[in-house]
Nucleic acid binder design. Structure first.
Lengths: 151, 151
DNA sequence: GTTCATGCAATATATGATGTTACATGAACG
DNA sequence: CGTTCATGTAACATCATATATTGCATGAAC
């Protein structure tokens, strides 16, 4: 099944913004992600509505981080994205009349709920600041420069 | 994202077979699942190749369970299906040149690996016999008959 | 008022699960 | 035998959704 990479993409964008002083335009971010500026605006809309980032128009405009990186968790970002489906597996139908269906749904549902809870807990444990620190560590190790070293 | 319901569907089919003495045809199973016989054969192919079920042609043919329900776990079934993707989220690209990408992939990868491991462990803990027992319990509680009480 | 940037709707594309048709193979029954 | 029933499989249609793209409106800075 096709996998949703919006969370990954948004984190990538946020880290670039954290590494950058002034506002960054959708176009710049899009080039760094080799995608389209509209896609950037689309996935950032939720974060903007939550107040995590700010978008300004006109000359010198672009995206700015509007919160403490240490206070923003992956769970916040995931929630701002609209909490897209986490699991690729699901129950066939919700036909409450069939006891077989009920038993299958109950068993799978327990497993699915556990996995979702674990994922959310994992997300809540990681802050943007921690990710940024990891980026700095990797940059030092590679001896490169911090900016957007994209192909 | 659209969710893969093949595991749910196959379990449904296996439970119907466990409740039924003789062979069951794809057509009968398809009606019970309100789908197409070809879909049944497709998702059952892996289980047949693993020897978990048997398929016989001609008059009186159909599908038969070929293993102990207590020995068949959901993990076995999942594996026989070809281990379809468990998580709906994924990493954007595998561009090893970008340290930001590496950091994001590492963080998300840890969460994803944990969740997948938990799911597999959950699956390994449930046997077809346990599911069948749950079906019987639910049937008793509802006062209905065990067969394929589908709409 | 021209340029730059976001906001957003509308549309196109790609992928993968699901549904369907068609035909071949082989077993059981007359 | 041949007929019927069932699976096996390829080929194609359908549908949902993430992703890509175009177009135009809005508003800020020069």
């Amino acid at each position: 099944m096709r996998r949703d990479s919006r969370l990954s993409g948004v984190l990538h964008v946020l880290l670039h913004m954290a590494n950058h002083a002034g506002p960054v335009t959708s176009e710049t971010l899009a080039k760094a992600m080799s995608t389209n500026p509209v896609v950037i605006r689309r996935v950032m809309a939720g974060l903007r509505d939550q107040g995590y980032v700010r978008a300004e128009k006109g000359h010198g405009g672009g995206w700015t981080l509007a919160c403490e990186p240490a206070a923003l968790t992956l769970l916040d970002v995931y929630t701002a994205l609209g909490e897209p489906t986490l699991l690729a597996l699901g129950n066939r139908t919700e036909s409450p009349g069939c006891v077989v269906e009920q038993a299958v749904n109950a068993a799978l549902g327990r497993s699915f709920a556990q996995a979702e809870a674990l994922l959310r807990a994992s997300f809540a444990d990681v802050t943007l600041a921690a990710l940024a620190a990891d980026v700095r560590r990797r940059t030092r190790r590679a001896g490169g420069k911090p900016g957007m070293a994209h192909a």
